[in-house]
Write a protein that binds this DNA or RNA. Sequence first.
DNA 1: TTAATTTGTTAGACTAGCCTAACAATAATA
DNA 2: TATTATTGTTAGGCTAGTCTAACAAATTAA
Lengths: 234, 234
Amino acid sequence: MLIFVLMLSFTEENYLKSLFQLTVETALKEEAGTNELAAHLGVKPATANDMLKKLKEKKLIKYEKYGKSSLTKEGKKIAIDVIRKHRLWETFLFEKLEFSWDEVHEVAEQLEHIQSKKLIDQLDKLLNYPVSDPHGDPIPNAKGELLILHQHTLAEELVGHQCKMTGVKDNSSAFLKYVDQLGLAINKNIKVIARHHYDDLIEIEVNGKRISVSPKFAENIFVVCTACKKKSKR
Amino acid sequence: MLIFVLMLSFTEENYLKSLFQLTVETALKEEAGTNELAAHLGVKPATANDMLKKLKEKKLIKYEKYGKSSLTKEGKKIAIDVIRKHRLWETFLFEKLEFSWDEVHEVAEQLEHIQSKKLIDQLDKLLNYPVSDPHGDPIPNAKGELLILHQHTLAEELVGHQCKMTGVKDNSSAFLKYVDQLGLAINKNIKVIARHHYDDLIEIEVNGKRISVSPKFAENIFVVCTACKKKSKR
DNA sequence: TTAATTTGTTAGACTAGCCTAACAATAATA
DNA sequence: TATTATTGTTAGGCTAGTCTAACAAATTAA
Ligand SMILES: [Mn+2]
Ligand SMILES: [Mn+2]
Ligand SMILES: [Mn+2]
Ligand SMILES: [Mn+2]
């Protein structure tokens, strides 16, 4: 019996990953538009359009002319696998190779395309089956199961509430370094002191010190409210 | 001041590596032919010819129409860097991820193209600055210095001499598994018992047992003679 | 030293992945 | 509803890397 292994290029894998991130992972919608996808990947719509046809041909996405696109079951499986590899590599770089959390993403973008089941499973084992990466994002397990839980952001937190930082939305090096600078980090306790309506700054207390952050900043910090403990889905 | 980083494709890196392996590393010659290089890379001569022109343009090789090719200083530097990455990754897979020596090469072929100086230097540190890979091949250091020492092969060893296995020439999985099967491994002591001229088999003693190996097999086993201790260059 | 063989080159074609420019369909708005 | 803006598609072109087929140069053998 001949097993057919659908070998995808780096580019194809990246399209599937992007589509996943624009739909399933943010759970806000089931499908994404061509321009949106192109923008997310940093290519022109015409380019994305070609690839959408190709991925449809390979039965990895659902796509109809002038319609939005979504992943098929098979496409989703591949996207999750790429994300698993990305996050395990980020964790490896952070835990074992002394990388800081703002340095890991760029290198993981390359490493996520290495093809070797044994490699990734052994890496998982070496890291002791981590459940989240250095940015607080959940790592899919070997079966492709991914915990998708909606964390709310600091921007949505109520005044007076105590919460704990669980992750970041923006993964850019610039943002992450800024977070470091302010003394924030995953698992830090944050108390929302006040919202200044004059300039929309949010005053918080962290490490026993008071600082003010912008709404843009606060929207990129995931927190879990230690007070109201309410469950939610991402 | 703008620093020009010559970004090479996987393919270009592979051509430089191949050229290095056909020339410098085996020290038998300074230059390689187009057909020879093409065969080593598994492409057609016409394809290699195109790339040779391109690499000449980039000043990474010396090449003249109808002539042999050789690496420039810059080309050599890049080739050694790729080889360093390849062998460090092989060592990592072997030492940290429970890969066997016949499994590492294939994955290292992919990993050797990842671009990150920090990654490779930290990997080197994690592995405690290894000097040779699982196949006994020398690992270039961070400065690009590569120990090129000629080891002779079991096929050249004299009858009656005692020697120690130091590496393998053939890195194929098939060969390496065969070596395992016969109870041979790096650092094993081997005594050459006899040469059977009838069928050219070489009888050796290893692990207290006598076995016979073919000339083809013996030519792919590097040894150092423990008796005659003579120095030599590869 | 001519002929045969080997080695290397050129021309032309193909695919993947990207682009721009022109256009078509859909959605938003007046 | 008609107009405008947005979104998506097509056509055609580019580069990198590969191929085949035809040919040219260099080497080897007769
Ligand atoms: Mn990342
Ligand atoms: Mn991450
Ligand atoms: Mn190898
Ligand atoms: Mn090796």
